[in-house]
Simulated assay, not measured.
Amino acid sequence: MSKLLYSVTMSADGFITGPGGDMSWLTPHIGPNPLVDELIGRIGALLVGNRTYRGDDPHRGTEKEGKAFGGGWEGPQFVLTHHIPQTSQPDVEFVGDLATAVTAARAAAGDAYVNVLGADVARQCLEAGELDEVLTIVAPVLLGDGTRLFDHPGGTNVKLERLSVGQVPHATNLWYRVAG
């Protein structure tokens, strides 16, 4: 059975986007990362939030714009949204509720990972008990504002078990299992 993995790059101060959802901060920090290259081959489907799907792109203005992992991955995407568009996209299914989206993404992924993209969808998956692992790639930059990696007003305590820690010249990889 597939696992749900939230993979994300964040600033050292815990932001995954800059103010207003800006992703341009990420562009100078995208570089060779053998762990990410290996992971891409293990992803069977994406579960994506609507804001992430329609949002800013660190590859804006290049041939990689609008492509998952900058064009490094292709396959089925399930976009969680309250506003299902009338027109369809190849390999993209728009889904109106989390349970249906998770079930469909897991089925499409088979034994591979369902990679979760989007802070709000990851939070929803975590709260529903569906999130299995978190891969956080920490970039050496302080943003000061934006979208936090995990935001839960009033706070919460989610226990994580470290699976691995690694470094590449431009980032630190932290891989965790969500503890039951």
Rank of each mutant, 00 (worst) to 15 (best):
I43K: 07
A45N: 12
L46Q: 13
L47G: 10
L47V: 10
G49S: 12
N50S: 15
N50P: 01
N50A: 15
R51K: 15
T52G: 06
Y53Q: 06
Y53H: 15
G55P: 04
D56V: 09
D56F: 11
D57L: 09
D57W: 13
P58D: 07
P58Q: 12
P58C: 08
R60H: 14
G61V: 12
E63A: 15
E65A: 15
G66K: 13
G66Q: 10
A68M: 07
F69Y: 15
F69I: 08
G71D: 02
G71P: 03
G72E: 11
G72D: 11
W73L: 13
E74Y: 03
E74N: 10
F78Q: 06
F78K: 04
F78N: 04
L80F: 05
L80N: 12
L80K: 07
L80I: 12
T81R: 13
H82Y: 04
I84A: 02
P85E: 09
Q86M: 02
Q86C: 00
T87N: 02
T87F: 01
T87P: 00
S88E: 15
D91P: 00
F94K: 09
V95A: 09
G96Y: 04
D97S: 13
T100I: 00
T100K: 03
V102L: 05
T103K: 08
A104H: 06
A104M: 07
A107E: 14
A109Q: 10
A109Y: 08
G110V: 03
D111T: 14
D111Q: 12
V114L: 00
V114A: 02
N115R: 06
L117E: 14
G118H: 01
G118N: 02
A119H: 09
A119L: 07
A119D: 10
A122N: 05
R123W: 09
R123A: 15
R123S: 13
C125G: 06
L126A: 07
E130L: 05
L131E: 12
L131Q: 12
D132T: 10
D132W: 03
V134W: 12
I137R: 09
A139L: 02
A139R: 00
P140Q: 12
L142Y: 13
L143F: 13
G144D: 11
G144M: 10
D145R: 15
G146K: 11
T147L: 11
R148C: 06
R148A: 15
R148S: 14
L149A: 11
F150R: 11
G154I: 10
V158D: 06
V158H: 10
